[in-house]
């Protein structure tokens, strides 16, 4: 998979947003999870039929950590991403996102309903129910995280996804970047990942697919129905034996559901 990278000046010149691009076809904007952007097999799969544009959340681009300080509010971040879309000459696209990125895809589609042709939401954040608290993974012990994110934390898929570089300096850099990336996302979801999306979801007019792992221990699968109810014309795909990262832990099933929806 050939991945190119471009840097877009937005926000009145105060922000440089890095966008990774892969594939060809109609445009698809992909919003990554809080840990940062990974061009994983799922993104590569999307790139087989789409031109995937994956902007990096300000602050999460290597070498530019303090860009996060240029964006104060979630509403500003939505404007930043709309500027990114315009700079890419995208007037409408499939919006896809995972977890925190799923929430951003919803926010963007709610603010600019005509921008989204379809929405692919993989375990999106953004809603809160007292009876279904979202796990505060950023304050959990590191050794507990695999079990929170994966149905099968000991399995080869989880182990490969969690693998860190062995060279010490690279390992430090990788951990620090991942932690900082979460900190950047935290600006928009801390301490509760609810900034009022519930009241805005009705503005979304594009059809949506909501994919959720049945064993999601970060955001319980009960939220799938919640999104489905609030997004008219949406479909839900629940994935068996799957945690919070369906595109990683159950790539084939997730890709199949997404392919069917986008066909």
């Amino acid at each position: 998979m050939n991945v190119t990278e471009q840097t877009l000046e937005v926000w009145g010149g105060r922000l440089s947003v890095r966008v990774k691009t892969a594939g060809s076809g109609p445009p698809l904007l992909y919003f990554h999870q809080s840990a940062g952007l990974a061009i994983d097999p799922f993104v590569s799969h999307l790139a087989e039929k789409y031109t995937v544009y994956a902007p990096e959340l300000p602050g999460t681009s290597a070498g530019d950590p303090y860009a996060i300080h240029a964006v104060d509010e979630l509403s500003d971040l939505v404007l930043v991403y709309e500027e990114v879309a315009r700079k890419l000459d995208i007037s409408s696209a499939v919006l896809a996102g995972q977890s925190f990125g799923g929430m951003l895809a919803c926010e963007l589609a709610a603010a600019y309903p005509s921008l989204a042709t379809k929405l692919v939401l993989l375990a999106p954040l953004g809603l809160w129910r007292e009876d279904l608290p979202v796990t505060s993974w950023m304050t959990e012990a590191p050794e507990k995280l695999p079990g929170l994110f994966f149905h099968d934390p000991a399995g080869p898929i989880a182990q490969a996804a969690l693998k860190l570089p062995e060279e010490p300096a690279q390992m430090v850099a990788a951990i620090a970047q991942r932690v900082w990336n979460n900190g950047c996302a935290g600006k928009f979801i801390w301490p509760i990942p609810d900034r009022g999306l519930r009241g805005r979801l009705h503005r979304i007019t594009a059809p949506a697919l909501v994919v959720w792992g049945k064993d999601d221990r970060i955001a319980p699968a009960g939220y799938a129905g919640e999104f489905s109810t609030l997004l008219s014309g949406s479909k839900v795909a629940l994935v068996d034996e799957c945690g919070h990262l369906p595109q990683v832990e159950k790539y084939k099933e997730t890709a199949a559901a997404v392919d069917e929806f986008l066909a």
């Binding site: 950590p65 950023m138 304050t139 010490p168 300096a169 430090v172 850099a173 951990i175 620090a176 970047q177 932690v179 900082w180 990336n181 979460n182 900190g183 950047c184 935290g186 600006k187 801390w190």
Partner: peptide, 16 residues
């Protein structure tokens, strides 16, 4: 050490 609470450079220094 909650993510974001410690500057990324401070975090690198601390981990090293």
């Amino acid at each position: 050490l909650i993510p974001g609470g410690l500057d990324i450079r401070g975090l690198q220094a601390l981990l090293s």
